[in-house]
């Protein structure tokens, strides 16, 4: 059981590190880095399930009979693109926040907002 699911559990560990950074860190850039880590680990989780023992990359060749599952690969290609799109948008928000607030620390931004109320 421990060998059979080791891949998945390592992916879970990585996911949780990412999620922890997103929630606990106050620096906006670090939050985004955590988010990227979280998403990339989910990709690892997906790709791990596609693997077949003894299989090869799903590129057709007449002398190969076992291939890994191509569907998760196609899904994750899409998900990677979605991930980088989110990152790009988030980073542009961070730049604007830096210009408007002069800081990229969560606590300081909230402090500035409360001052204004």
């Amino acid at each position: 059981m421990f060998i059979g699911l080791a891949n998945t559990w390592v992916a879970i560990l990585l996911m949780m590190i990412g999620l922890y950074i997103v929630i606990a860190q106050g620096n906006l850039i670090k939050k985004i880095i955590g988010l990227t880590l979280f998403q990339t680990s989910v990709f690892i989780f997906y790709i791990s399930m596609a693997k077949v023992e003894g299989g090869t990359a799903p590129i057709f060749s007449s002398d190969i009979s076992i291939y890994s599952n191509p569907l998760p690969h196609a899904l994750i290609l899409t998900a990677i693109v979605v991930g980088i799109s989110t990152t790009a948008l988030a980073l542009s928000l961070i730049v604007r926040i830096k210009e408007a607030y002069g800081t990229i620390e969560e606590e300081e931004i909230q402090g500035l907002d409360e001052e204004q109320d």
Partner: peptide, 15 residues
């Protein structure tokens, strides 16, 4: 604050 609201929504939404 629209920027900050959008950022917070982005984090929550992406999670």
């Amino acid at each position: 604050r629209a920027l900050w609201a959008s950022y917070q929504y982005l984090i929550m939404g992406t999670i």
